[in-house]
């Protein structure tokens, strides 16, 4: 018998196995935690908090390299692209908000972006984080694709920025609600804008869960913030240099 064919295709088979196993595990754990979260509502049972923790534990216990894990699940990350496109529907439905409140939206986007970059810079300097890491932290509050472009432009590490962006999103989505409950805010617009600016897509998604109007404003502000920050990046580069 000739096994050459088997050995030729062995790497391909392994790639398929890796994709199947890790994708199944990721999606399965996500669904389980979602089910569990419906029964037992705590901030730490939220799918975005508990699923990555369990996944990290499993990858450590099974001695799996992250590069292997991501090679099997990067297609899930890629779905963030069409998910961004999907925000066109709620934005279109409430387009009258933009027309009516463009001044407030603009003020929020500019002020929030500057605050986000400035706070990251000051806090990092305060605890003594060195330059490349500090630069990678600056664009952490805008959505991943934008943030990676900006991080590369100002001299950070795009890959690290992606991680910080996700952590910011998790924190913003989980605790933003709590913070906003305590604040004496009068308008839905302020809640939406702060979710969208501080916690990008994750915040918008969470906001959408709370209230479709808040979520729409968050999505809108998120997109505007992303575009504004890309335009801001060359200026930022000049200031930093």
């Amino acid at each position: 018998m000739n096994f050459d064919l088997f050995f030729t295709y062995r790497p391909l088979l392994m790639a398929a196995e890796v994709t199947l196993i890790w994708s199944f595990l990721t999606i399965g754990l996500y669904w389980l935690s979602k089910f569990f979260h419906r029964r037992y509502k705590r901030w730490w049972t939220a799918p975005i908090v508990i699923t990555p923790i369990i996944l990290i534990i499993i990858t450590i216990l099974s001695h799996t390299n992250y590069n292997v894990y991501i090679s099997g699940t990067h297609w899930l990350l890629a779905l963030l692209g069409p998910a961004t496109v999907a925000f066109a529907v709620p934005i279109y439905r409430r387009r009258s908000i933009i027309v009516m409140y463009w001044r407030t939206l603009g003020i929020g986007v500019i002020f929030g972006s500057v605050l986000s970059i400035a706070s990251a810079w000051l806090l990092a300097s305060l605890v003594g984080i060195d330059s490349t890491l500090r630069l990678s932290l600056l664009p952490r509050s805008i959505s991943t694709p934008f943030a990676m472009v900006i991080s590369g432009e100002i001299g950070g590490t795009p890959e690290l920025t992606a991680l910080f962006v996700v952590l910011t999103g998790i924190f913003g989505a989980s605790f933003g609600q709590l913070v906003l409950y305590w604040l004496p805010l009068k308008s839905k617009m302020s809640r939406g804008a702060s979710f969208g600016i501080a916690a990008h897509v994750a915040g918008s998604s969470k906001a959408y869960e709370l209230d479709s109007e808040i979520g729409t404003i968050a999505a809108l502000v998120m997109v505007l913030t992303g575009i504004f920050n890309v335009l801001l990046a060359p200026v930022l580069e000049m200031i930093l240099a």
């Binding site: 910011t168 605790f175 302020s190």
Partner: peptide, 25 residues
């Protein structure tokens, strides 16, 4: 340290943005 920066920074942005937008509104 990074976690602290992210948590504190995000809280600052959430609160600051919410107030300025509320004010502007």
């Amino acid at each position: 340290k990074i976690l602290a920066i992210i948590i504190l920074g995000t809280t600052i942005v959430i609160i600051g943005t919410a107030f300025i937008v509320d004010f502007s509104f």
